[in-house]
């Protein structure tokens, strides 16, 4: 039996499948809900809260919340987008994001969300924390300056690659991504072909010797906002 689960997002009627999350059902219907820690094929994590929607007036993470009949979901409204902008602003100021020389620029999901949400500059004071680089591995490096702690590398390595190379160390403001060996990335069994080496939404886990491969104007988010691929796929 596959009865649909009917609900609305911003007034649009959506037919979800049992067991789907709001984010997935929306996407199937051509409605893009902004997200960062969500990645297709990985267990939902629910940590970044960029996918926050109001369900019957209450904030919930669309990437973890299952669909239920009759839900009234608000997503692309001024109120919800203001919440999302605050999160993106905070992610920018709590790390060190020098987009002008970042290999990920133009293809970065954090940057693309800032563009989509109309952020010209973050409104909070910058923290400029001291963060480290790990260049030890032959093929991949970690730049902790740009890590937004989305745990996509953790899940990709653990669930897809079956290796568990990454996890978090320390707590609170000191929380950081770490490798499961005593020392550095070179001491792990991470391979450049691993899912974990390409799961990072930002420029924190980067393949070496790729650099600025795609010219300006042709990168993923140069011309069209992130999410428009979902919106236009549905319009066709």
């Amino acid at each position: 039996m596959s009865a649909t689960i009917d609900f609305t997002i911003d007034g649009k009627e959506i037919k979800g499948q049992p067991g789907q999350t709001i984010l997935e059902a929306a996407q199937q219907a051509g409605v893009y809900i902004p997200r960062l820690c969500y990645m297709k094929g990985l267990t939902p994590w629910g940590s970044c809260r960029v996918c926050t929607v109001l369900i019957n007036g209450r904030p919930q993470a669309a990437c973890t919340q299952p669909v239920a009949p009759g839900m009234v979901v608000e997503s692309n409204t001024d109120k919800v987008n203001a919440l999302r902008r605050n999160i993106i602003d905070m992610l920018f100021v709590e790390g060190n994001h020098f987009c002008m020389f970042c290999e990920k620029s133009g293809n970065c999901e954090l940057q693309a969300l800032a563009y989509r949400l109309g952020i010209a500059a973050p409104k909070y004071p910058f923290m400029f924390p001291k963060r480290e680089l790990d260049m030890s591995h032959a093929d991949v490096f970690i730049d902790h300056n740009r890590c937004i702690q989305c745990a996509r590398c953790v899940r990709a390595s653990r669930d897809v690659d079956g290796k568990h190379v990454f996890d978090f160390a320390d707590r609170g403001a000191h929380r950081r991504i770490a490798v499961d060996a005593e020392a550095f990335l070179k001491d792990t069994d991470l391979a450049v072909t691993d899912k974990a080496a390409e799961a990072c939404p930002v420029g924190a886990i980067v393949k070496k010797r790729v650099g600025y491969a795609v010219p300006f104007g042709q990168r993923l988010y140069d011309k069209e906002p992130i999410g428009s691929e979902i919106e236009t796929a549905a319009a066709k």
């Binding site: 020098f98 987009c99 002008m100 910058f126 400029f128």
Partner: peptide, 17 residues
């Protein structure tokens, strides 16, 4: 504010760490 240095500190702010 015109440019990343004015809006976010930019390259000169690399010394902030």
């Amino acid at each position: 504010s015109v440019g990343d240095c004015a809006t976010m500190g930019g390259i000169p702010a690399l010394r902030n760490m």
